[in-house]
């Protein structure tokens, strides 16, 4: 059995996080499933649990001149419904899971979970988002690339909670987002592809192929400079390490990425 902690506020949560080794649970839409067990038996949690989905201090969406600030406890549904946030971002979240799951699942949860198929991550990589982490005694800001260090692995210290996501305001000129799954809704991604054209040029993030999202500023530069299509495609091919699994194949994943890159580059002309 495991212990359950339910803090009254963020301070209490961070105090307990500092004192005990706890697994934070927000919406629980992935963690509770991974802790599945014989129905009716106790959940197979790997340690004691702290529930944070009810903390108001984590549920906010604000903006400054340069950025949006999205609290870690904001649900995916709230994200989708927020007019303040840009359409290209809301579109991504709107394709995740199902309405029922989006009502519970949080923005912070998808980031902290760090699944290789997490659909928020290509968006956050492409937008150069930053993650704000807080513990009782510290506050850290990490670029998303530095936070996501592997499949189900993040740079979060045991005493930290994700406090918010900082999504920079971009002047978006063109986007191409495509999520490939085994069906049209309520499904994990086999490949996800996010391309943005902002004021500084193309940004491309590829999810669900490697353990973490693929983004290459060098290849983006080559695209922006009008470099040869072949060299760009070869460059991306070298970065993709897809595999065959129960949902798809390496060659399908990689070919679809190449197709989307070509489409993106063709549309530019």
């Amino acid at each position: 059995m495991y212990k359950n902690y339910r803090p009254n506020n963020l301070k209490e949560a961070l105090d307990w996080m500092a004192e005990h080794k706890l697994i934070p649970v927000a919406g629980g839409t992935d963690l509770m499933i991974r802790a599945r067990n014989w129905q009716g038996a106790s959940r197979a949690m790997k340690g004691d649990v702290i529930y944070i989905q009810h903390l108001d201090e984590l549920r906010f969406i604000t903006e400054t001149e340069t950025d949006y600030h999205i609290g870690a406890g904001v649900t995916q549904a709230q994200f989708c419904q927020c007019d303040m946030l840009p359409d290209y971002a809301r579109e991504v979240v709107g394709q995740m899971a199902t309405p029922a799951i989006r009502n519970a699942a949080t923005i912070g949860g998808n980031i902290a979970n760090a699944a290789s198929v997490a659909d928020l991550l290509p968006l956050l990589y492409a937008a150069d988002a930053k993650i704000v982490l807080r513990s009782r005694d510290s506050r850290r800001v990490l670029p998303i690339q530095s936070f996501e260090i592997g499949k189900y692995k993040t740079a979060r210290r045991a005493d930290e909670l994700i406090f918010e996501v900082i999504l920079p305001k971009l002047e978006i000129r063109r986007t191409l987002y495509k999520k490939m799954g085994q069906r049209r809704a309520s499904i994990l991604s086999k490949v996800s592809f996010m391309a943005l054209e902002a004021e500084d040029g193309t940004r491309i993030a590829i999810g669900a192929v490697n353990d973490t999202v693929v983004r290459s500023k060098e290849l983006e530069k080559r695209i922006n400079e009008g470099g040869g299509v072949k060299s760009v495609l070869d460059g991306y091919k070298a970065l993709l390490h897809g595999s065959d699994d129960k949902r798809s194949t390496k060659r399908y994943r990689e070919r679809v990425v190449i197709n989307l890159l070509m489409k993106w580059m063709e549309e530019k002309r």
Binding site: R183, R184, I187, L188, K246, R247
Partner: peptide, 24 residues
């Protein structure tokens, strides 16, 4: 798509064995 690998069904969860939803 349901396949067997070394005698074990590979897709034995809702997340890997899809059936059509209303969207399909």
């Amino acid at each position: 798509n349901m396949t067997s690998k070394a005698g074990g069904i590979e897709q034995f969860t809702f997340s890997s064995y899809p059936i059509p939803t209303t969207m399909d």
